[in-house]
Every structure is written in C-alpha cells, then in structure tokens.
C-alpha cells in the first residue's frame, strides 16, 4: 500500500480528488471491519438531528447556523460508526472540501434533504452529482442512501407524493441513471414521540425503521466490503495511473519545451562563433596568400617564421 508521503505526492501530481480517494481508502483499510456511515447535505437540513435520532441521544450538536466544522464521530453499533460532516454550501467554502473529503473516506453516505425546501436546489443537486462522480459507479447503489427529512411538515399526502417523485427523478439524474435507495424520516416527530413517550409518533417518524435499514445496509456492505474495496482499489489504481501518465506526458513536454527554449537561446552563440570564425579564416587566408606571393618572389624562411610567430 502507498505511504502517507506517497499519497501526499499523489495530491500534488494526480489532483485533490485522487488524493482524497486514496486517503479515504487507506483510512477504510486501516479502520478494520468497522463501517462508517456519513451524512451530508445543506446545513440545517437535519443531518445531526437524524444521527441523534439514530443514536437515541443528543450527541451531535444541532443548530440553525453551521455547527459542524470537522467530522464528528460516534459509535452506533459495534460495527457501525456515524460520521457527522460539515453542511455544504455555507459561506465558508472550506466546509465543502472538508465534507467531500470525509465522504470519500466513508463506506455509506446518507444524503440528507429537507423536504420543507421543496425539490433539491442547485447546490444539493451539484453536490450529489459530485459525490456520485467521485465514487466507483458499481458501488454507488450499495453505498448511497437518499434521506428526505422533515416529512411531517408536508401535510398533504399528494403533495408529498408528487415531491417525492420529483426528488427521486432528480436523484436518479444526478447519479447518472443509477437507482439510489430512498428513505423518508422525521427526526422532529421521533424526538416528540420519545419526549412524550408516544410510540405511535416514534413509529410514524420512520426513524426505527430507518435505523434498521441503515444497520442492514451496513451489514450487507460489510459482507461485500472486501471485494468492493479490492475493486475500489483497482479502480483507483487505474484512475491514478491514468492521471500520473497524463502528468508524466505534461512534465516530459514541459522539459522538452524548456530544453528547446534554452537551445534556441544559444543559437545566437553558435551563429556568433560562425561569424567570428568566418572572418578569422578570411583574414588568415589573406595573410597566407600574401605570404605565398612573397615566397614566389623570394623565399625567405626568416620572414615566413616571423609571420607565423606573430
């Protein structure tokens, strides 16, 4: 496997996305059998609330302003770890980079959408598309779950049905035609049900069902993880090799270009010497010609040597 130094070099030579994928893969391989379930979505979409609902306690910070700066982790089960990532499309663009980096290192990604806001906005759509493009196409269906939250806020069932259909269409389109698993929950209803000890509300929130769904998805993913990781590794190797070969070509071209520019700088030096030598040859030929003429009149070895020694 690549060392940290190698991965850092890849960041420089093959681009940040390749770097992030290697970081994620190495982290996954070093974390053993534990499956990381990460959430993502707009800030205030209910990501942390959903995770708290899954945990059954208030572990992750919840707020109307961006709260999660770095990925916060908590154990859900012996084999599952939850990773709460920064919200996307915040004024601080470094949050997006941190979130993407964290997602690429995770096993299962929960894309959280607040249905109160309607369909996916442009930022969410582009974000989902970027995640899908960043993942191995063959693993997207196993690794991604789209979760609509705040469903209790939509009273009209037909409105919810219509919205669900539109959202699912958007998700499919963003994932390049791949069918992403879809779930609807209401963390608020769950919380109210827990606080008021109303099982009906808890059940209606969809949280217990969703928790089982996530655990089941993680278990299935874990079973396929090894072959998926090998596949992911080989795929990543192929992408990395292509990027490195592109880089190699561009660096080689740059070296050749610089060498050509340096050599062309010295064309003048060669030309100057040719000019100097040409004049020298002409002058020396003139001396030799005069000397030959002198010799033809009267051979004078002393004079000849004197000329040759000047």
């Amino acid at each position: 496997m690549l060392s940290k130094k190698d991965v850092d070099a890849l960041g420089m030579l093959a681009g940040p996305e390749v770097y992030q994928k290697w970081q994620g893969l190495i982290e996954k391989l070093s974390s053993g059998s534990k499956i990381t379930v990460a959430n993502t979505g707009l800030y205030n979409s209910g990501k942390s609330s959903l995770f708290n609902a899954l945990l059954g306690r208030e572990h992750f910070k919840v707020g109307a302003i961006p709260t999660t700066k770095t990925g916060d982790r908590e154990i859900l089960t012996d084999s599952i770890e939850l990773l709460d990532t920064p919200g996307i499309d915040t004024p601080d663009s470094s949050d997006d980079a941190a979130a993407f980096d964290a997602l690429m290192r995770s096993d299962i990604i929960l894309m959280i959408h607040n249905v109160k806001t309607g369909m996916l906005n442009r930022a969410e759509y582009e974000w989902l598309k970027r995640i899908a493009e960043g993942m191995n196409r063959e693993t997207i269906a196993d690794r991604m779950i789209f979760v609509s939250t705040w469903t209790d806020e939509i009273q009209d069932k037909s409105d919810l049905e219509k919205l669900r259909s539109e959202i699912q269409r958007q998700v499919r389109e963003a994932a390049n035609g791949i069918e992403i698993r879809y779930a609807e929950v209401s963390a608020k209803r769950f919380k109210t049900g827990i606080e008021n000890d109303k099982k009906a509300l808890v059940d209606a929130s969809g949280i217990p069902e969703f928790r089982n769904f996530v655990i089941d998805a993680a278990k299935k993913f874990s079973e396929k993880a090894e072959s998926l990781r090998r596949q992911e590794l080989l795929n990543l190797c192929r992408i990395t090799r292509d990027r490195l070969n592109d880089k190699r070509r561009s660096v080689s071209d740059e070296i050749d270009g610089r060498k050509r520019r340096i050599r062309s700088r010295y064309d003048g030096a060669f030309e100057t010497w040719r000019g100097i030598l040409s004049r020298f040859t002409s002058m020396r030929g003139n001396v030799q010609s005069k000397l030959n003429e002198c010799k033809s009149i009267s051979y004078d070895s002393y004079f000849e040597n004197r000329i040759y020694d000047m």
Binding site: C294, F303, R306, I307
Partner: peptide
C-alpha cells in the same frame, strides 16, 4: 608585399 603581409598578420 612583406609590409602588407606583416600588416595583415598583425591585424589577424
């Protein structure tokens, strides 16, 4: 001629 030759050789 010698003078010319010397002059040319000196110039060279």
């Amino acid at each position: 001629l010698k003078s010319d030759t010397e002059s040319a050789a000196r110039e060279l």
